[in-house]
Design a protein around this nucleic acid. Structure first.
Lengths: 345, 345
DNA sequence: TTCGATTAGTAAAACATTTTACCTGACCGA
DNA sequence: TCGGTCAGGTAAAATGTTTTACTAATCGAA
């Protein structure tokens, strides 16, 4: 037994064919090899316990078969609701197409030294996905209209021409408005997300408010209270809404955590969510289904966002894309449970 | 301007030296190059905008300069409290030693096909860190006493001989016991973590209970209630403890979320945490400091766990370790705030 | 002056693949 | 029999580094 790993040459020798033949068998995109030879080669591979070196494979065609996932250096970057889902989506699609994913944290130093560029230049990565981008990531302008394989996951920017895949937040807002209005609600409160942060929160609220006014249910700023995406801020926001108008019949929260917080506040105020007042959430986190009452919500398919972004990125990498700009919105889905069963009297 | 990236040969030509010289300058561990030459080479590199190819660099010595981080395929793998911290620690140490990190999700299929081994064999990775390992990961036996560069992060296993770095949970338990006893507490309740899961929860509780009994404060099972690590289960557990003994003067919870939940329950029962009853947490999550009252807790240094594990792993990879088994415990630290100011009357 | 050591550098092999261009023999129709 | 096509395969170049073993020049000491 040789001390080190078998290589393609060993396989060739063992099966009595040339290097090239083994390589062709390996990337079986080529029909030039007869079945008999192919089998001989495969047998030799099994015999020698051969695994092709990814490193060496990448060299000739300058491919790393790897994508980078860039996450911002947040305090609890990964504690975010959807990170897991998005990364799972990315991982799944990447793996199914034979790619690995490299994790990079976009810390200040990292960005200052433009290491994200090095990443592409030194061939350690074929493309980059950026999750958790916010307005403050000015260096994104570097990718403006460039043809580098780079894509924004679940956000978008109006000032730069970047590829992105994002949940259809405006549609989510409109769906919420349609649903509540169709059930007869006219006095509606809204808990919006942190306006300063990302566009998504703004899109959702705009979609909601605009559609409401199309339905003839105009909603002033008075019935919109801002939360910070946690359940406690949802609670506070609901209390505030009740103070401003004790007779509202429905609350739409920008995410499920805040919706669940609102439910608590409502209960504390003597109203039973779902019976006395409708509560509509957004995201469809796992606990939404388990809550009491089970939360009616708008499902955001973060997994799909991740996998779609990856799929597009790989199309760019493999040059199947033409020059088309990728700016895709992933559809949302109303999930009816029990927190909106009430009809206003 | 040449169409493709500059390579080491271009740099050599431009600066009028040999390939070797450029390479030596690149890995400036060698003093054989005169300052003048070095400067000429560096200038040429800048000129040509040269970045060495990581792929090619790895080939000759079969190094990928990359580590894999294996995370289990949990529903919300990344939503866990400490994932972010651990990964940041890993990332930081790896980056400072010139390594990248590859993210791999240990899904069922992945494990079944033993892809974690392929990872090492095809040279795409020099070592593996596994976060979130639990008893059910039987395939870990594969690494039992093997000399593969593999390390468990923040867990350990008695049945297999594996390298690991873990927070010092027993010490955390003892610290808690010492602290509470030193402040005169005799009637103490404990909210432990889910016993079935990982060893860590067990270690913490054992350390706590054993040290208490060394102090002459034996604690039967009666004053231990199990929680599931979320704040609501902490609330429920605290209620249960109060029911079992309304006169307890202190509660030690296995994590901060449950401690904060317990505070809520105590307040609801008319007791002010920190004044009427002491509450001690564990972990030191960011909200612990912001809570009312600020939570006294035992700080778990997850970042350090990640970076220490990585440091050891890299020592193995680079062969500086001898054959020594790595089984390190990272010290914990009592952080005094205001939730334990009360002294029992 | 010659011997060794030191300094500064180089040529060439090694790493493990892909890819391009070429070769050989068989077969077939004219 | 000649020319052409085709199937099945191969040799060799290319990818971009590191590393080992060697050389040429210089310098000090015997």
């Amino acid at each position: 037994m040789s001390k080190s790993r078998a290589n393609i040459r060993d396989v060739a020798k063992q099966s009595g064919v040339s290097l090239t033949t083994v390589s062709l068998v390996l990337n079986n995109n080529d029909q030039r090899i007869s079945e008999a030879t192919r089998q001989r080669v495969l047998a030799a591979m099994r015999d020698l316990d051969y695994t092709p070196s990814r490193l060496a494979r990448g060299l000739p065609n300058r491919r790393a078969n790897t994508l980078a996932v860039l996450v911002p250096a947040l305090q609890h970057a990964f504690a975010d609701v959807y990170f897991g889902e998005i990364i799972s989506g990315i991982y799944e699609e990447a793996a199914s197409r034979g790619y690995r994913i490299l994790l990079e944290v976009a810390r200040r130093e990292y960005v200052r030294r433009k290491e994200y560029l090095t990443l592409l230049e030194d061939c350690s990565v074929d493309g980059i996905l950026f999750i958790g981008a916010t307005e403050e990531h000015r260096w994104l302008s570097e990718f403006d209209s460039s043809d580098k394989p780079f894509i924004i996951v679940n956000n978008r920017f109006e000032q730069w021409d970047l590829h992105y895949v994002i949940c259809d937040y405006p549609q989510a807002g409109r769906t919420a408005a349609d649903y509540l209005v169709s059930r007869g609600h006219q006095r509606i409160g809204h808990i919006c997300g942190p306006s300063s942060m990302v566009l998504t929160s703004q899109e959702l609220t705009d979609g909601f408010v605009n559609r409401l006014s199309e339905h003839g249910v105009p909603m002033g700023d008075r019935m919109i209270v801002e939360g910070q995406y946690h359940s406690d801020t949802g609670k506070l926001a609901a209390d505030e809404l009740l103070k401003r108008d004790p007779d509202i019949t429905a609350i739409f929260a920008s995410n499920d955590k805040m919706a669940l917080g609102a439910c608590q506040a409502l209960r504390a105020s003597g109203r039973i969510p779902g019976e006395d007042i409708a509560v509509l959430g957004c995201d469809d986190i796992p606990t939404a289904a388990l809550a009491d009452p089970p939360l009616t919500t708008i499902r955001m398919n973060f997994f799909e966002v991740g996998s779609a972004a990856t799929s597009h990125l790989l199309d760019m990498v493999e040059g199947r894309n033409g020059q088309a700009m990728v700016q895709q919105r992933v559809p949302v889905l109303l999930v009816e449970r029990d927190s909106c069963t009430t009809l206003p009297s």
